[in-house]
Design a protein around this nucleic acid. Structure first.
Lengths: 226, 226
DNA sequence: ACCTGAACACCGTTCAAGT
DNA sequence: ACCTGAACACCGTTCAAGT
């Protein structure tokens, strides 16, 4: 007898709980996407009747909502690094990108439910501080904050889009092949566009150019030996 | 007798055709989103048996694929306007934004299937030309093209996200209310962030800043009186 | 308070049969 | 070549009934 107080009871399946349901659901979604989450599969995974799940989480839609809510909450505080406002804004952008890319399916669900922006509120505060430090004030500073915010979120969405893309015909390679390239005035440009882009490079180049356009070039942090 | 060759035939329902199926499906999707497109509703709309549809389009998934294909094809050629490369790039960005926002549901489907980028190939060509005209060459020009491309697509995705968003609690207004604003060093900034952003303004500010960061300030088109 | 199976109304898809 | 209804395997959800 493994446990003294309950003899002959069926194996120690712990009581079904809302948390257990969410965990199992999160597992299904993380691995195979939300379409893999059916109430019947979930029940099988949990070893309960389908209808028990309804008692704990209401219905499928509010189950998904709970998962999204959890994901939004999980995205932690942002700690900017760097010695100039420009560098710190770039570091915020970088951190956000990394966090988002770690949870593709769940982030997609957050996006579908229109909560992407809410997930970014703490980042928004950090950006506001840096805009202020760079000398921007009032409405202009707010505009800069939002430009960075929209651009970062946007790039992450575009990247995700590219990753899910099936092989595209006609794709960039075909369209920028030598034939076209000869006609172009810049063969090196044509060749570069024929290669698949490095999304991280594009992201960093965009963010740097945007930040410079918004905040201007950084002040030299210290008088150098010159 | 309305038509001589066929007396007593049931009303002149024209033969079911692939095009008719696509049109009806497109209507359902455009108005109520892809989840409103069920094979049974579609059949009812067309006045045929559910199974007839399968003969013409295969199955639901390839029907949706055909709709997406159509949408990608419909996005026309881009005609840049303006007298400097900078202005022309901005005009390209503007046009793309408008085209995309005219077909929200279909564009979302293009996005879900990872074809957003393919839809942008003609725009990419136009951007490459402008980057070249601005003096960028080779890999640097390609990077600029992609920065603009990613940024524009990204902003459109973010905007769509915001539009579908349910009212968010806690939202920006609550989080940037006076209480917080007092603590901030810039009350005007806090007030500006408490107001809902004007997406068009954010878009234009981002694109302008990005283009300046990438291409530099435009040359004066003509020597001015000074 | 928690769990259950039966039943309902919906799906997409296949298939043999019609014309 | 085109269209049909019946049937299958799957859904999410409700509900009365159990403990």
């Amino acid at each position: 007898m493994p446990s003294p107080q309950s003899r002959a009871a069926p194996p120690p399946r712990p009581r079904l709980t809302r948390e257990a349901v969410l965990d199992a659901a999160s597992g299904l979604v993380s691995q195979h996407g939300p379409q893999a989450l059916t109430m019947r599969k979930l029940a099988a995974e949990l070893g309960t009747a389908v209808t028990s799940i309804y008692w704990h989480v209401g219905n499928r839609e509010s189950l998904l909502e709970a998962l999204v809510e959890r994901t939004v909450r999980e995205l932690g505080e942002i700690r900017p690094r760097g010695s100039t406002p420009q560098a710190r804004v770039v570091s915020i952008a970088r951190t956000l990108r990394r966090e988002l890319r770690a949870r593709p399916h769940l982030i997609a669900m957050v996006h579908e439910r229109g909560l992407t922006e809410r997930m970014f509120l703490s980042a928004q505060r950090a950006l506001a501080q840096e805009a202020h430090a760079a000398g921007l004030r009032g409405a202009r500073a707010a505009e800069a904050v939002r430009s960075v915010q929209f651009t970062v979120i946007g790039h992450v969405l575009v990247e995700r889009n590219r990753e899910r893309a099936p092989t595209q015909r006609p794709g960039e390679p075909e369209l920028w092949e030598p034939a076209e390239a000869k006609a172009a005035d810049d063969p090196a440009l044509a060749r570069a566009l024929a290669r698949p882009p490095d999304p991280e490079k594009v992201f960093m180049a965009s963010v740097r150019a945007l930040v410079e356009g918004l905040l201007g070039p950084p002040d030299p942090p210290l008088p150098q030996s010159l």
